[in-house]
Amino acid sequence: MEIIETKELDKVENFLKDFDLSLEKDVDITLIAVEDGRIIGTCSASGNIIKDFAVSSEYQNEGVASKLLTQIQNRLFDKGVYETFIFTKPQNRHIFEGLGYRFVEGSEDVILLEGGLANVEKYVKNMFIKSGLSSNEKACLVMNCNPFTLGHRFLIETASKENEEVVVFVVEENKSLFPFDVRLKLVKEGVKDLKNVRVMPGGKYIISSATFPSYFLRKEDVRLKAYTRLDAKIFGRYIAKEFNIKRRYVGEEPYCKVTKAYNSALLEILPSFGVEVKVVERLKVDGVKISASFVRNLIKQGKIYETKKFLPSTTYEFLISSDAKDIIEKIKRSDSPH
């Protein structure tokens, strides 16, 4: 048997059919295990996610998986990817644990394991130490702020009034129209006057789309539910615990299906980790419930001036500055919902 890298993806696709898997479009590397000219196993990687892993049933327990995993890890390592993640079904947990992967969290539909340098406990501990925050009880918000609106400001203000200490995690994944550094900066500037509020990057384990388990869950709704529940559990088990977070504030979500599902996962799961979830009604201006997507829509239509009443002055001033030019162009051209 030999392990080789392949570009003949249609053959791999065919092989994967028997396992009810399909090769995802975004894979960077695909390896196959070949015996007598036949594919007997495969795995792929996309960024730092190892996926589409399968070995023919007649060759299982013969070390094919460990050879594939070694090779793909070596290739990723040589590319400078030192942290790897695997999403799989709960019944495969023991296989990957036997191959040196660590269980992070999971639900009945999907589990996340990590390997290499990745270490959620250590990472979150470091995040906390670097933050310099006290070990007192805290409230928390997780926000994308794409861009930071008066609606976000209202939510944070509510938390700030009702709690001694508040942490705001800004989603770090750079998949939004406003880049992460801009989003973070605008939140920081927008809540500067709230002395008990700390704004910081959300890091790798809070809503990171790199860790979206998409390949083995067929239906969109099942997939969405599994993803939101996984994120909620990771938050409860690692982040809330380390930061001593006892409350999480979320905005009521009338529009977006994804956020709605996420809110209900948080409401269902976080209390079991001792975290209360508070849903706050959205702030209205002129009868409009403020949302960042509404603001982006105005920008898209070229109505920058009309965004003024929905935004803190810090965000608005950024929008009319020359620094925002490229972002505005991108929004006008984009059809992305985020």
Binding site: G63, S66, K67, L69, T70, Q73, N74, F77, G80, Y82, L99, G100, G116, L117
Partner: peptide, 19 residues
């Protein structure tokens, strides 16, 4: 610099070293 040695195969060990 980071470096590695070994395999994930049975009776072996996969070692990764970082500064």
């Amino acid at each position: 610099r980071p470096a590695k040695a070994g395999t994930m195969e049975s009776n072996d060990i996969y070692i990764m070293v970082y500064p």
